[in-house]
Design a protein around this nucleic acid. Structure first.
Lengths: 253, 253
DNA sequence: TCAACTTTGTGCGAACGTTCACAAGCGGCT
DNA sequence: AGCCGCTTGTGAACGTTCGCACAAAGTTGA
């Protein structure tokens, strides 16, 4: 907030913030807002790390990439750090977002408060289904996907969110790129191919569950009868709910 | 599927599948299903890697952790590999999932086809809001959160999905753990603390956008006027939409 | 049978990420 | 002023992940 000009040193340091750090900055930001709401003016790396769920050394190293300094013996100035991270993440600008696909998930995303509260503005809702076009949703009228170029231009959109079925996602993605969008958040369960310079992030609900399944299986294999019956490789439970489920519950009691 | 007993060698090899690999297995699985649907019987690491969006050496190394072998000169047997990965991920069992919070997002999740198609069964819907209790949603009646222990027991639930507001998430999480759930997928924007042995994965929609924002900001700083005006650190656009957006669009044309 | 070709599985070095541990620096107290 | 206790920032060690490059092992065709 305070420094209008950033020094060459600052910029070069900011240029190579590790990806892992970038992914954690939003978490710190959230924790910091909580601390600020509680009326605290400064916070130690230890405390902030605890409420962000990370190691304090990691937190300090992450913050050191921003070039924003704390004060030894005291901690970090909460307000300053919020500004610093917001700056680094580019949240001083209010990004315009286009949401494509207003099905089940699209509806939820359109109404998700977390976007607006972090400075993202849903500037356009689009869908291919004529029955959905015209629907009013959280203050936006759903437009037809063919109007995407205009919607992007008018709204100054640079981020696209794809919440369509997988089959449509690549086409929508291509249209977004053609319209000048350079960042895409993909909720469709498929891999998107994009030209150089376009960033894609993927959120896949069922993948997360499958990862949990892996660990759950492992825990069951360790906790329960380790060798007998090889229960987790047993396919009997595929369709039958009760039997397998009772067994499973027993493992966890 | 085929091997009822797994050898000690198999198990020890399976014991330490790297996390990075586990996270990619579901992606391979999806790509494999596409290949299978196309009627192909075998697939090369090169081809599979391309459709999964990864390096082929990485794919081969990942698969080598499963102990499932391809055939040199030919590739991998598609059906065999699907079984192998499903096995490793524990998808031969049909996991029961409890979904807590049937607001905007909860509705979308309850109707999400990707769960069922990967072998996850939504066994219970719960909410704290009395007005939502009793609602019928995709073949399930919403029950009150106080009934969670019974719901978990009856359904044999081992995975909980939290789709509540952040403020309620920790409480719900504690209840899940108390009821014996050992894997949690958290959509609430907050850090959950859980005892040893419970796995939590977090999906945070606004964090993903903030990461995109970071990269978008960087691209703008590189593409556009590199030093003049330091536009991205300019806070003028905080509330004013049009001005900033026009500038931004110009950068991308 | 043998050579040519294809594709897997993996050794290895480099890049990246995490954690420990501690010197350097700061504020408060006497 | 000078000491003490606290907290940051970072060097260094360690573990993980990535990707190249190539030997090993299979297939195909003559």
């Amino acid at each position: 907030m305070s420094d209008q000009r950033e020094s060459a040193d600052d910029r070069s340091r900011r240029r190579d913030i590790p990806d892992a750090t970038v992914a954690r900055l939003p978490v710190y930001l959230r924790a910091l807002h909580a601390v600020a709401d509680a009326g605290q003016a400064t916070v130690s790396s230890e405390e902030l790390a605890r409420s962000a769920g990370v190691n304090s050394a990691k937190l300090r190293k992450d913050l050191s990439h921003l070039g924003s300094y704390g004060t030894r013996g005291v901690g970090y100035d909460v307000a300053l750090l919020i500004d610093s991270i917001s700056q680094a993440l580019g949240l001083t600008k209010r990004w315009a977002v286009a949401l494509i696909g207003v099905g089940n998930l699209g509806h939820a995303l359109a109404g998700y408060g977390g976007f607006a509260s972090r400075g993202f503005r849903i500037a356009a809702l689009l869908d291919a289904d004529p029955y959905r076009v015209g629907e009013r949703l959280h203050g936006q009228v759903v437009r037809h996907i063919d109007e995407l170029p205009e919607a992007v231009a008018e709204g100054g959109v640079s981020i696209g969110v794809i919440a369509t079925p997988a089959i449509a996602a690549q086409d929508v993605c291509d249209r977004l790129v053609a319209a000048g969008v350079t960042s895409i958040l993909n909720f469709a369960p498929c891999v998107l191919s994009v030209p150089e310079g376009v960033d894609v992030r993927k959120v896949d609900l069922s993948i997360e569950l499958q990862i949990l399944s892996f660990h759950e299986r492992r825990k069951a294999a360790l906790t329960g009868l380790p060798n007998l019956r090889a229960p987790l490789d047993d396919a009997r439970n595929d369709l039958l709910g009760d039997d397998g489920d009772d067994y499973h519950r027993a493992v966890h009691q």
